[in-house]
Amino acid sequence: MSVVEKEKNNLDKEEKIVTALSKKLNKKVNIQRKKRLWVSIEPKEIVDACSIAYDMGFEHLSTISVTDWIEKNNFEIAYHLWSYKEKMLLTIKTRINRENPTISSVTSLWSKNAELCERECHEFYGVIFEGNVNLTPLMLEDWTGPPPFRKDFDWRKYVQQEYYDESNPREDIYFEVKK
């Protein structure tokens, strides 16, 4: 088989998966570039969408990532799923409200793997995954402040309050630094 034919075959395969996924999810699946697909869904559909993708061969949950869109007042949660069979990455994106960041957990599908990813998202963004029984912090033991990766967390002010004393002449230099 020539390289051109191979490429054509791959494209056909991609098209086939995209049409099948679009039909099952009832959403438009986009091709970002070669072997990279993404789809945007409603937050309440997340477990169903993930299980449909799982059945189609996207068995490996690479990671769950959260982006804080503070101007739009929402968190974008992205589930990166890898298919060993098709060698393709599917990103399922969903947006939840920043005021009430709650979403169903996917631990029913990926148990321990999803648990760890969700713990991290909970720790750094304060997203609550309903159904995940273990949301204890990974790195931030005894943390009392707000979730640190949120855009409205003023870390410099927090550090100045928490660690330094302005009246101490050896430490007042830390208060001269502007953001």
Partner: peptide
């Protein structure tokens, strides 16, 4: 704290 002097989770 070295270069992490303004890190929120580092011992100073």
């Amino acid at each position: 704290g070295g270069m992490y002097w303004d890190s929120y989770n580092t011992v100073k």
